[in-house]
């Protein structure tokens, strides 16, 4: 078999992060100052070991679903692949720069939808010319203007569904080498879900590799050909989506 082109290689990846203020700090202000001076961690800070030794290689053209119960480290692993969280042990090698479908944070509720399309596009690294070319496509795809001229209103006046649709449309406007999607399929009404699924298929065709985190088993089996099952930070199973989902279902059913 000819060697396939890998896009993401995870080699024994551990990810830990520190949570500030998880517990009340002991001691008074003076001991806190002493800690800062000595550069020791505050006792209120806790380390969470979210991903424990995950290894896999992902190849071009694959759509990989990540499944596992809440708090099993799926989203953390995704952020690790995106390079947004550092690995404490092991390495993640990537082709180009994987992008998280997460433009939400760049948008401002006080601005109109049209200005947010531009701002979100720029935040994702698109040029002004690229945004101008795709602007109409983004607005049409979101369906915001189907019931009147809503795109010129401030985003805070949108219903939660409308906001989610516009956010997904902006995020999906860019093509990516490796695309990471965290529960993005569950937004919007049925018509929009159908459109976004189709868009993800297109993105996958251009992207090379798509990672999808979802709690919807059917979304995983529909869109993905391979699945990784994470449980408590470790990789329990890696294989064809249908088999992994089946094993996961029998595991959760048993509990």
């Amino acid at each position: 078999m000819a060697e396939r082109t890998p896009t993401v290689v995870a080699d024994g990846v551990h990810i830990t992060y520190t949570v500030q203020g998880g517990r009340a700090a002991k001691g008074g202000a003076t001991s806190a100052l002493g800690r800062i001076a000595a550069r020791r961690a505050a006792p209120g800070a806790r380390t969470v070991h979210a991903v424990k030794g995950v290894s896999f290689a992902a190849y071009k053209g694959e759509a990989i679903g990540l499944i596992g119960s809440n708090g099993s480290g799926k989203s953390t692993l995704l952020k690790g692949i995106a390079g947004l969280l550092p690995t404490s042990e092991g390495r993640i090698y990537t082709q180009g720069r994987p992008s998280l479908l997460g433009v939400n944070a760049a948008l401002m509720g006080d601005l109109s939808g049209e200005r947010n399309v531009v701002l979100g596009g720029l935040a994702m690294g698109m040029s002004r010319a690229q945004i101008r070319r795709r602007y109409q496509e983004i607005v049409d795809f979101s369906g915001i203007n189907d019931k009147g001229d809503f795109i010129s209103l401030p985003m805070r006046t949108y219903s939660s569904g409308m906001g989610a649709r516009l956010r997904f449309s902006i995020a999906a406007a860019k093509s990516h080498d490796v695309l990471l999607i965290d529960e993005a399929l569950a937004t919007g009404d049925a018509a929009f879900r159908r459109r976004s699924k189709q868009r993800i298929e297109e993105l996958r065709a251009q992207a090379g590799t798509v990672f999808l985190v979802s709690h919807s088993n059917s979304a995983i089996t529909d869109t993905c050909d391979r699945a990784l099952w994470l449980e408590a930070g470790t990789l329990r199973m890696d294989g064809p989506a249908a088999e992994v989902v089946e094993a996961y279902q029998s595991f959760t059913g048993k509990k």
Binding site: V9, A57, I81, P86, T87, R91, I92, Y93
Partner: peptide, 12 residues
Amino acid sequence: IALRHGLTVSGA
């Protein structure tokens, strides 16, 4: 494999 295909460490 990663090095052979010119992949880079993410987040550096």
